[in-house]
Nucleic acid binder design. Structure first.
Length: 295
DNA sequence: CCGGACTCCTGGTTGC
DNA sequence: TGCAACCAGGAGTCCG
C-alpha cells in the first residue's frame, strides 16, 4: 500500500531518468489501468508519443509528470499495488505489466518504464494542469486539485489543518485518511502515527485538544520522515530500479500488523479492529478515547 | 455534514 | 491434493 514515502521514493527515483526525456512509444496492455484517463487507450498513446517530459511532481500519493510545452501531465496513482519500474530495453516484462513506455533520456539513453499493478487499483491518465487556489503559479492536475497539501510540503498550513480538524465532527483516523484534509497518509502510517501520539483511532476530532493535535501532526511527520529516510536508501539508484514497494519497513512498525505482539511501549498486546473496512491496529492501554463526554 | 456500504481487483493464504 | 472462500485496502460514489 504505497503511501507518501513510497510514492516519493518512486518520484525521486524517476526524476533523473524522465526529466527532459522524450517518449518514443507507449504500449497499453490492460486498458483498466487507464480508468482515470478520460478517453480510450489510443488517445492516451497518441497524446504521449513524441512528448517531452518534465520533472516528476508529487502531492500526497499522487505523482505526475508534466509534458513540456503544454498544460498537461501524465498522472500516476499507484493504488494498492502499483509499481513503476525502470528497465533496460529488452528486459523481460513482468507478467503484471499494464502499461509500458520507451523513452529516450538525456542522461541514461533509451530506457523502458513499466507500470506494474497486480490489483489494478492504481492507474495512469493524461490530465490538464490547473492553478491551485492556495499557491499562485503552482499547477496541479485537475484530479489532484481537491487533495490537500501533504504534511511534508513546505506550504502545508498547520493552523488551517487544526482548524479543519476542529470543524470536523468525526473520528481522528477518518480525518487522517481524508485526503482533502491532509494528503499522503494511508492505513499503515495512520496507525503508526496514532500509536506514537497515544491517540485512539476513533477519538472525536472535536474533542482533540490543540496540544494533542500538534503532537499527532508532529508524529505523522516523524513517521513519514523516517520511512522516507529508510526508503530513500533502499533502492539502487545506479540501476534505476524504482519500486513502489521497496520502501516497506516492517522492522520499524510499532502497531500496524503487530496484532498479538506486545506494545513496544507498555507490553500489552496490540489489537486489531475492523474500522472503515480496513484494519486498525492499536494498544488499548496506551491509546484511549478521552476528552469527550461519552453518552 | 456524516458514516456506512459498495465498487473497482487479483495473488496469496487459509479452510474444508 | 484441489478447489473455493477469504483477505488486503486507496479512492470514488451513492444513499440514508
Amino acid at each position: 500500500m504505497p503511501e507518501l514515502p513510497e510514492v516519493e521514493v518512486v518520484r525521486s527515483g524517476l526524476a533523473p531518468a524522465v526529466t527532459g526525456s522524450t517518449v518514443l512509444a507507449v504500449t497499453v496492455f490492460d486498458e483498466r489501468s487507464l480508468k482515470r484517463h478520460d478517453g480510450p487507450a489510443e488517445d492516451f498513446v497518441e497524446r504521449l508519443t513524441g512528448a517531452r517530459l518534465a520533472g516528476p511532481q508529487r502531492r500526497g500519493k499522487f505523482l505526475w509528470i508534466p509534458i513540456v510545452g503544454g498544460r498537461e501531465a501524465l498522472v500516476v496513482h499507484l493504488g494498492m499495488s502499483g509499481q513503476v519500474l525502470l528497465r533496460e530495453p529488452g528486459t523481460e516484462l513482468d507478467r503484471l505489466t499494464r502499461i509500458s513506455f520507451d523513452v529516450e533520456s538525456p542522461l541514461h539513453g533509451i530506457l523502458r518504464i513499466d507500470f506494474v499493478d497486480q490489483r489494478i487499483f492504481g492507474s495512469m491518465a493524461i490530465d490538464d494542469l490547473v492553478e491551485t487556489p492556495d499557491v499562485v503559479g503552482q499547477l496541479v492536475p485537475t484530479q489532484v486539485a481537491h487533495i490537500a497539501r501533504d504534511p511534508m510540503d513546505p506550504d502545508f498550513d498547520d493552523a488551517k489543518f487544526f482548524a479543519a480538524l476542529g470543524r470536523r465532527n468525526t473520528g481522528v483516523k477518518r480525518a487522517l485518511l481524508d485526503q482533502t484534509l491532509i494528503s499522503g497518509v494511508g492505513n499503515i502510517y495512520a496507525d503508526e502515527a496514532l500509536w506514537a501520539a497515544r491517540i485512539h483511532y476513533d477519538q472525536p476530532t472535536g474533542a482533540l485538544s490543540r496540544p494533542r493535535a500538534r503532537t499527532l501532526l508532529a508524529e505523522v511527520r516523524l513517521v513519514l520522515g523516517r520511512a522516507l529516510a529508510e526508503g530513500g536508501t533502499s533502492f539502487d539508484a545506479q540501476y534505476l530500479n524504482v519500486n513502489g514497494e521497496s520502501g516497506y519497513f516492517s522492522h520499524s512498525l510499532n502497531a500496524y500488523g503487530q496484532q498479538g505482539l506486545p506494545c513496544p511501549r507498555c507490553g500489552r498486546p496490540i489489537v486489531r479492529e475492523q474500522f472503515m473496512n480496513r484494519g486498525s491496529h492499536f494498544c488499548r492501554y496506551c491509546q484511549r478515547v478521552r476528552g469527550a463526554a461519552r453518552i
